[in-house]
């Protein structure tokens, strides 16, 4: 196993932040750590980065404890991120790469490619403070990968990014995966994880809820979800036979049904009372799985572009 976390635990002032968490991250995958705010994602990542020391447990990379050699192989973008405002783009890129052990002569050759890629070439010798917020976010991302790391660790990478930058960064992440890099990221937005990850681990309250490949996790839950889009009041649906749970969203309703429920019968029963515009039998979303598994209040999770309405 490439990166392995073995029963790591961390308490802060008597409060358990991470509780005997074990993870296995294979090489060359995009691995998502997902969970609501306060689940322990950032603490876990900081322990991998050796910034926070675990109370117990071990973290190993290719069998060796993470430490000195590890930091140079990693590109890390924390949730709380920033840059020196008074340095020029070129200076700060060289400096941060140098801190990762890359000689200035080498990084100064590579930085043009990345500045071109994120469209900031004309700012190369301007100070960081002259950039807009969106530009700074792109710059932060490329400073993380300039030294060509084997592992990329991104904490809440997409929070606060504008949609164009999200697309740009997703493209670069996919390129890195193709180049056999390992990418570990955390998010509390399930849809992003669903679009990007190969593997994932859900944590809640510092504990692992479920982990595995995206397909494994989903197949465990079977196709027991129905999305419908109706006109009129759908309140009666929750009491129809076979319906375990109904979740109403702005534009559609999601139903969890018992295994072996007659979906045709259900369709008829609904069509009797209201007009159906859409009736979809779907795989459960990560969001549903997570709520189901962690037994948490869905309000703690964010859905991209939609407001949960339970």
């Amino acid at each position: 196993m490439f990166l392995k976390l073995d029963r790591i635990r961390k308490e802060f002032n008597g409060k358990v932040a991470v509780d005997d968490l074990s993870l296995e991250v294979p090489r060359g995958v995009i691995y998502g750590i997902i969970g609501p705010n306060g689940a322990g994602k950032t603490t876990t990542i900081r322990m991998i980065m050796n910034i926070t020391i675990p109370d117990s447990g071990s973290i190993t990379l290719e069998g060796a404890r993470v430490g000195k050699g590890f930091t140079n192989r990693v590109g890390y973008l924390p949730e709380e991120r920033g840059l020196y405002k008074k340095m020029t783009l070129q200076e700060i890129m060289i400096y941060l790469a140098e801190l990762k052990g890359m000689a200035a002569s080498e990084s100064s050759k590579k930085l043009d490619y990345w500045l071109e890629r994120i469209g900031l070439m004309e700012y190369k010798n301007k100070k960081v403070e002259e950039l807009s917020k969106g530009m700074q976010q792109k710059l932060q991302f490329v400073t993380t990968i300039l030294h060509d790391p084997d592992i990329l660790i991104l904490d809440e990478i997409f929070s606060g990014l504008d949609p164009l930058n999200i697309e740009l960064i997703k493209d670069i992440i996919m390129e890195m995966k193709r180049a056999e890099k390992t990418i570990l990221f955390s998010t509390h937005v399930m849809e992003q994880a669903e679009k990007l990850c190969d593997h994932l681990c859900m944590i809640s309250g510092g504990k692992k809820v479920i982990d595995g490949t995206l397909t494994d996790v989903k197949s465990q839950f079977g196709k027991n979800s129905i999305q419908i889009d109706i006109e009129g009041d759908g309140g009666f649906i929750s009491s129809l036979p076979g319906v375990k749970k109904m979740t109403e969203f702005n534009n559609y309703i999601e139903l969890h049904i018992e295994d072996g429920t007659d979906t045709n019968g259900l369709l008829k029963a609904i069509a009797d009372k209201v007009l159906i515009r859409r009736f979809d039998i779907v795989e459960p979303s990560l969001y549903d799985i997570f709520i189901d598994m962690a037994k948490i209040d869905p309000l703690e999770l964010e859905r991209e572009g939609e407001v949960a309405n339970v």
Partner: peptide, 9 residues
Amino acid sequence: RIMEVLVSS
């Protein structure tokens, strides 16, 4: 907020 990036290196 550059501190955390620095102490990871």
